[in-house]
Design a protein around this nucleic acid. Structure first.
Lengths: 377, 377
DNA sequence: TTTGTTCGTAAGGTTTACTAACAAACTATG
DNA sequence: CATAGTTTGTTAGTAAACCTTACGAACAAA
């Protein structure tokens, strides 16, 4: 057979069977129900465009799987047969989210289908790396799984480092991991579906799934390092080498001229990571604090402006310590982006801090499960 | 009925019917055939994963529509019944591409299904704007349509300016257009399906469809202005306000410090547009030419580095005059991106000039038609 | 009580792609 | 040269998925 031209047909471009269509429609119904509770079958039909018959069929399937349940009849006084209200069976299944982004402690949580945290679990890192760190993740996951009191849909993991599509951690320097098939290892150990992705990318999923963001957004996480996650048209951008989001390593500004070599001291991370910010604030004292934050925000703005311009981004969400990010830093960042891009582009730009707080990675890990297992969000 | 939460369910998230699945599979077959000619039905079945029966059915449909034809039997000496080879019926349909990106002349072409240009047509602009420019586009399109000697699948248009998804030109300053429903007007006038998109975006489609690019790439077009188009996972990025690609208007560098106001003279366009480059080369003389180009390339690199880092872009393609782009400029741009991003990110980065030459927009307009009408590419 | 509305389901039809089986047409081989 | 094996493309039948049409149940309003 003739070879397909190299490079051209890169995307797997798969066939689509009717059953794929059904999976899609099933997810559509579930998603609609997840976002707006208190709908009847007829409501779902109107909302999704499917017929009442089809919706009934899909709902029956979902009820049989304990993903949806009937709430009883609608109370409003309206003409016609009263509607039977439906809702996602929030106690029917649970999920486990794991956050490996902190440098000192691994966090886990058992979550509801709608992202309510039911129990929390932690494991100190104690500087563990490699196999030892891996084992601690496994034990933490087992503890969380044991705490769940409903069938667990899956385990989602947000880890630092570059993560391939099959949950292979290519490199995670902090944890001393390199080429660790984390997803596979955990799935084997836990006997439950596991999905692993980069922590900053997962944060973007959280903001998209549980936050108030639209279909296009960028999340910038500011912690020990600086990472980012990008969602365009509702889908996560993974990058050519699965390293999308590594904006922390990009140099910012041309103060030293155009010919300078790569300099870790001039990267986004050098300007904005929490340790670096805190150190400079300490050095500057109370009076200099605002100025340090303002300058850092400006640097962030300089780095983001080309991205905002090229993608026509509508929303940038910051994640990190509120006492550092809110106020001067965020204001300076937004103002700098505005100043450096065409007004048409940035007038409508929203830059804000996440509403999800410190649980953003845990929630994102849950979205990973929702999306991987139910096709939702 | 309960309202869907605002902002959450922004994407239209449509139902999928079995017939949508069929359309997809039909396009898949056509695409496979378009990319690698000389396949039999059985080959197509193996390639697509569909069964021979299904492929036969789809192919029969495509043959009936004169999109595919039988070439005769395969000549190789192999056991078994000889295969009937198929090919896209390249003379069965044609397309019209229109390029409005030049400031002095509108270009049109009649193209084959595989992008071969059959005839060219031009119309001088003579500084026309508004209604007059619109009319010239219409007349040019009519001339091209008249030159076609097979059913025309559609007319694709690449225009400068911000273009909405339905071919509404929000703003195109050069042409004096603002809120012009170009796609609708042309479709009405021509009686043929018309698809309109931004010229730089369309160039990215061309590179993706007819060039040698992978699924993720950015095209930067350098002409009277500087624009860009971005394709991620095979899909065009449109942006929150449909203004994706407006990287020309982004300020680059922090030579003037962080507090400076927006300054047109410090934008990518100011550094890299052809008029600006030519003027500075004239001023610098033969000896200074290399330096001017090198500096411009560095500026481009500074602007692109954050984009490459955030998206983990694998390929950047430049489009514009070879005598300016090749050599110093491209080398400096690549080197600057490498210097300003993490090596993991940019080691694998490819930066090259387009292989499609000046016809890139015409070809992109054709891809617009192929993709809009046949779901291909 | 009558009329009209709304809900959910049942029955039947259409579309889609699958599996199984087969005739046609070739090569390979004893 | 005859037979066996292989490959192609088609026919026939089946399963899945959604649709349209129709209907009973349950309510409000006149």
């Amino acid at each position: 057979m003739t070879d397909v031209l190299p490079g051209r047909l890169l995307r797997p471009q798969a066939k689509v069977l009717p059953e794929d269509a059904r999976r899609h429609n099933r997810a559509l119904v579930l998603q609609t129900l997840l976002r707006a509770e208190g709908l009847s079958r007829a409501d779902l039909a109107r909302e999704t465009g499917l017929t009442r018959v089809t919706v009934s069929d899909l709902v029956a399937e979902l009820i049989a799987e304990r993903l949806v349940r009937e709430l009883g009849q609608r109370e409003d006084a309206r003409p016609g047969k009263p509607a039977t209200l439906l809702d996602v069976d929030r106690s029917g299944h649970q999920m486990v989210g794991i956050d490996l982004s902190d440098h000192a402690v691994f966090r886990a949580a058992v979550l509801d289908l709608d992202g309510t945290i039911l129990s929390r679990h932690e494991a100190p890192l104690d500087g563990a790396t490699g196999e030892e760190a891996l084992d601690r993740v496994g034990r933490l996951a087992e503890r969380a799984l044991a705490a769940a009191d409903a069938p667990v849909l899956g385990v989602g993991v947000g880890t630092p480092g570059v993560v391939g599509p099959d949950g292979l951690v290519h490199t995670a320097p902090n944890l001393g991991w390199s080429g660790v098939p984390l997803q596979e290892l955990l799935a084997l150990r836990l006997g439950v579906p596991v999905i692993v992705a980069n922590d900053a990318n997962v944060s973007a999923l959280a903001e998209h799934g549980f936050g108030e963001a639209g279909g296009d957004l960028m999340v910038v996480t500011i912690g020990a390092g600086v990472g980012s996650g990008l969602i365009l048209s509702g889908a996560l951008v993974r990058g050519a080498r699965f390293a999308a989001g590594e904006i922390g390593q990009v140099m910012v500004g041309t103060d030293g001229g155009l010919d300078v070599e790569y300099d870790r001291g001039k990267t986004v991370e050098a300007w904005l990571s929490v340790p670096s910010l805190e150190e400079r604030i300490r050095a500057a004292g109370d009076t200099g604090r605002a100025e340090v934050l303002r300058r850092a925000g400006q640097r962030l703005g300089v780095a983001l402006a080309p991205v905002v311009g090229a993608l026509n981004l509508g929303e940038v969400v910051l994640s990190g310590p509120p006492e550092l990010l809110d106020g001067d830093l965020a204001e300076a960042a937004l103002e700098t982006i505005r100043r450096r891009t065409m007004s048409d582009t940035s007038d409508a730009l929203i830059l804000r801090r996440t509403t999800l707080g410190r649980d953003i990675v845990l929630l994102g890990a849950a979205v990973l499960v929702l999306s991987g297992r139910l096709g939702v969000s």
